[in-house]
Design a protein around this nucleic acid. Structure first.
Lengths: 261, 261
DNA sequence: CGGAGAATGGCATCTAGTGTCACAGTAGAT
DNA sequence: ATCTACTGTGACACTAGATGCCATTCTCCG
């Protein structure tokens, strides 16, 4: 790994020589939280370790927790744009693909997600925060599956599917987080998704066959983005296979490379 | 409604003339939160309105949020004891009954749950807290359904069922919270439970037929409780049909009395 | 009545989070 | 190249949730 960190998939805004960027701050905070404990680490300590002022910390991250969950917002925004732009012909498959994007977002930034997972398991406050994050995804899935309706079995079915998809996602994700050095269990992920959506999704699937796991590149970007930027981000996503915090990007060549089934 | 409040199903520990009990404090806090907003209400204001000192507030409730979610802990403990003592012959039915207890806990204390629902929808911090609470139930359900196993399809199936049950519970609960004056939709609740567990629960159901909705009184108490206490609590539960904050109790005569199916 | 134990109140203190203002770095216009 | 408008940063002050400490009060029981 490089010396000071800050060119990974964390969020590198010119962290070369000038002021420390978001990535550096997050790295310093994660280190302090891990070494000295989350509660015991004051924001002054984080500010000092990161080389910024305490005020700038709050300005750029909002709160102490948000330092750990900063990259989540970009990923969530990407997922929401994906759902908004997705065709409605096979909603369950769309949600499954969206969950795949979330999973991809986790496994492609292990420098953050792995130590954060340890912290989340230890600190109740952070655990609640993580749960609230996944609940946001679940709510987005439910909204998409409901498609305007506000009452009836359709809504209930959508919420059940969304909950099950999130549960399956978390199930596979946890198993990976326990041993992040092993290859990413894409096969197990797809199998789990298949399992939870096979039975429950019946009500929602009105057209289009089952359609196996999608192994295509999915990229969603803000509409007001220049062509060069899009090209650059797609290339970056293909190379590093990971989204950065500043700009949303999700790249993934989803060939199952797991050997356990 | 009585003058000072405090004899409902909130948690009345001798709130007659002496010091204000938990129920009075919660009632005062809910009133302030509703009238002046959650963030705008300081703990000093709550302490003054409830007639206790600020220090005692924190001592008895732990935090500002916990004032709103105080009764949840008792209900959760009851559910956990119920799961621990339940026979394992039909785990899905057991979880369904546990969800019914939770639902009962909500609908039997509308003086708290209804205004809290309004607050939860408005204040993000409280929304996260509510989500974390339901996640605790979901985790308890998953643990019960996993029954020791830590890997494999059994665990995934259990987590999916737990997530779906919670989703169905929340679905019906929300619809009731929007119009709490209408009769409690027990029929819709049972139908939703039936729906989400019919397809997914197959893996987990190994014995015992479907077994329609249980319409029996379920009461779980700590083992170190005197016979008189048990009798008194059962009677109280039967009369008020609601758990109080100090002691866990869940009463419910579950005859479907809803007219919409 | 009196003492033991628990609950309460008051005080000091810590820390997350916010508002405000002065200052520095930067891009664009003349 | 200089002025200017804008954006980000740092420093200070302040609010409020939360905790530790200790004296006081209340309650239960012998």
């Amino acid at each position: 790994m490089r010396s000071g960190g800050g060119d990974g998939a964390v969020g590198d805004d010119r962290a070369r020589g000038g002021r420390p960027g978001r990535g550096d701050v997050v790295a310093a905070a994660v280190r302090l939280f891990t070494e000295e404990g989350y509660e015991a680490t004051t924001m002054d300590a984080v500010a000092a370790a990161a080389g910024v002022s305490r005020r700038s910390l709050f300005r750029n991250f909002g709160s102490k927790e948000d330092i750990l969950f900063a990259e989540h917002d970009g990923l969530f925004a990407t997922v929401e744009r994906y759902l908004a732009a997705a065709p409605g012909d096979d909603p369950v498959a769309t949600v499954r693909a969206a969950a795949r994007m979330v999973f991809q977002g986790y496994v492609s930034a292990p420098e953050i997600t792995v130590p954060r997972y340890r912290l989340v398991r230890a600190v109740p406050r952070l655990r609640d925060r993580e749960i609230a994050m996944t609940a946001r995804y679940q709510a987005a899935f439910s909204r998409y599956l409901a498609r305007g309706e506000t009452e009836g079995d359709r809504v209930l079915a959508g919420e059940a599917v969304a909950a099950s998809v999130i549960a399956a996602h978390n199930h596979v994700l946890r198993s990976w987080l326990h041993a992040p050095d092993r290859p990413v269990p894409w096969a197990r992920f797809d199998r789990a998704m298949e399992y939870v959506t096979a039975s429950l999704g019946g009500v929602l699937r009105e057209a289009g066959g089952g359609a196996g796991p999608a192994s295509v590149l999915v990229a969603v970007y803000p509409s007001g983005l220049g062509g060069d930027d899009v090209l650059r981000r797609v290339r970056a996503a293909l190379e590093t296979a990971g989204p950065d915090a500043a700009g949303p990007a999700a790249g993934n060549e989803g060939t199952p490379e797991d050997g356990d089934w």
